[in-house]
Structures are given as C-alpha cells and as structure tokens.
Design a protein around this nucleic acid. Structure first.
Length: 120
DNA sequence: AATGTGACACAAT
DNA sequence: TATTGTGCCACAT
C-alpha cells in the first residue's frame, strides 16, 4: 500500500516520519528550524530534506503536523508559500501568540526550541 | 539505474 | 556588511 513512510534502503529508516515525529514535539507557541531538526536526526546536511518532508506532511491526513512551527535558521517564514493561503502560516503562528513582522518572527531566539537541547 | 529536485546552511566574495 | 554561489542528502520520476 501507499505507505508514506515507505523506507527504502537508507541508513535512517523513515527519515520523513522522524521529521514528523520531531515536528509534532514542538511545543505550542514555540518554533524550531529545519537545520535543528536535521541535526537532531543525525543528518546535519539534510536540512533541505526536512523542508521536503514537511511539504509532504499535508498528505498525512491521519496525523496533524505543525509544520508552521518550522522556519529557517534566521526565523523567516520561508515556507509560507507552501501553505494553502498566502498568509496561513503567519496566521497560525500568530494564533499561538507569536509576533511576526514582514515574514520574520520577532524574538525568534527566545521562542526557538532546539530538539538537540530539549530532547537529547 | 540514473538524474533532477528542494520550505536550507554556510563559506567565500 | 550584504550578496552570491556551492554542498548536501533522501526522495520522486
């Protein structure tokens, strides 16, 4: 069956799912970066893949992935174009109390949640 | 089986 | 200091 986690043959089985799992652990009102997730998964140079994984996350109708809580390392909403509406990502974040100005998260460093530090 | 792609990150200008 | 270019790795075709 069309299993979205179909791990083929890599070192890391289910890279996508691992991205989803970590993303789901991001606390409400907090954010993290693609690179942070990539490092946590042991592939520091796969940050681009994290974005790709999140791109496919909307297909996982079963589970809710808070993809809006993942931005690039400087706190810009680089993935906003991949959401349904032009400002969906921004609105989702603002609904969690995050202030955004010109696609840039204010106090990004304060809100930053690093899985490497928080999880292990 | 091989080549192209991408919601990044970093080094070199 | 602000841009520009290159590497990187797992997935899709």
């Amino acid at each position: 069956m069309k299993n979205p986690l179909s791990s083929t043959n890599t070192n890391e089985p289910n890279f996508f799912e691992q991205v989803y799992q970590v993303t789901k652990l991001i606390p409400y009102g907090r954010v993290t970066s693609y690179g942070a997730i990539a490092r946590y998964l042991g592939s520091a140079q796969s940050s681009r893949m994290v974005g790709w994984a999140l791109n496919s996350s909307h297909k996982s109708i079963d589970e809710w992935i808070p993809a809006h809580r993942v931005v690039n390392r400087i706190g810009m909403l680089s993935g906003k174009h991949h959401f349904p509406g032009s400002d969906t990502m921004k609105q989702l974040l603002e609904s969690e109390g995050i202030i955004i100005e010109d696609d840039q998260i204010i106090d990004f460093e304060k809100l930053f949640w690093d899985p490497n530090k928080e999880l292990g």
